[in-house]
Simulated assay, not measured.
Amino acid sequence: MGMRVLLFCSVLLLPPAAGRADEKLVRLYVPPELVETGLMQHILPRFSLKTQIRVELVDSAEEAELLLGGDGTALFEGAGQVWHLGRQGAGGAAAERFAEWLGSDVGRNTVTGFAPDGVALFALPGPTETETVAIAPDGDAALGWTVSREKCTRCHAVDDESRMAGIGSTPSFSVLRSLGDWEYRFSTFYALNPHPSFTIIEDVTPPFPENRPPPISPIQLTLEEVEAVLAFVAAMEAADLGAPLHHQ
């Protein structure tokens, strides 16, 4: 009798646990032509950094709570069309939070600030010109230095003291800081090769499949640590790479 009561209570406890997990997850459908621009890799980590809500890109609109396409609220234009945010059903609190963020000034500035080659690919819809506002990292730079020394020197030199560490063919943090898209690289590094094969960001990236363990000892960071690394890199002096080469 006691065992049956225990099992019954365990079953009753399962749905609320699942519900709590869904509160930190948004299922979003984005057409392939928009995904291929790299915009999602630019904006989704920034949303997750601030809210600790993970946005999962799904393969079909039927699976999604929110979708970007031709219907709904107009948000931005580029890649050949005006992109709207649509909804599937009522959606949850996490989906509502993402929709509010994407339609806010911060979300819109994040979209229009996406310029991987120095040229903005997206703008707000309509004739109004907007000014792109830089979003400064507000993490703990001291923590970022500690995290970088502990978890990044396997491959990178992160400061003067670690300049002999890492892999010779891998750029140092100061060299990466000198690039025009450094902030994009550091805020989305875990989605850029080769990092996905050995990096886990708590509450953002899915765990490694049990049948495919990482090739090397995995690196695990929290969202707070990722933002701290951003703050550390933002404050460092960029490497002087000299003037571009001119071919005769």
Rank of each mutant, 00 (worst) to 15 (best):
V226G: 00
L6G: 04
V35Q: 15
E33P: 04
A95E: 10
P196E: 13
T132H: 11
T205P: 11
E224G: 06
E63S: 15
P32N: 12
V133P: 01
A79Q: 09
V5F: 01
A99T: 00
K151V: 01
Y29T: 00
A141G: 00
S197F: 14
S217D: 15
G91L: 09
P116H: 10
E100A: 15
L68G: 02
G91N: 10
T37S: 15
I167Y: 07
P214D: 01
E183F: 09
V106I: 03
H156P: 08
E150S: 02
P214S: 02
A94R: 04
A238H: 05
A120C: 07
D159H: 06
T37N: 11
L7S: 01
P45V: 09
Q52G: 13
P127I: 02
H246L: 08
Q81V: 01
E63N: 11
F198W: 10
T110C: 14
A93K: 13
C155I: 06
P45D: 14
G72S: 07
G168S: 15
D203G: 09
E62Y: 01
P244K: 02
L39Q: 05
N193V: 09
E129K: 11
R46A: 11
F189V: 08
L6R: 09
M3G: 05
A134V: 07
Y190F: 15
H156W: 08
T51Y: 10
A79M: 09
G78H: 03
T153Y: 06
A165T: 03
I219N: 04
E131I: 03
F122E: 09
K24D: 14
G168K: 13
S48T: 15
E210C: 00
V175G: 00
G38S: 09
I135Y: 08
N193R: 12
L49A: 12
L221N: 11
W101R: 08
M236S: 10
I200T: 13
G86K: 03
A243P: 02
S104D: 12
F114M: 04
A93Y: 05
L49M: 14
T188D: 11
L6N: 02
G91W: 08
D105F: 03
I43P: 03
D59P: 09
Q88C: 04
A141L: 04
V175W: 08
A141K: 02
M164Y: 03
L192D: 10
S178K: 02
T37C: 08
E183N: 13
S178H: 09
E202C: 03
A231C: 06
M164P: 03
R154F: 13
G118P: 03
G126N: 06
A243E: 15
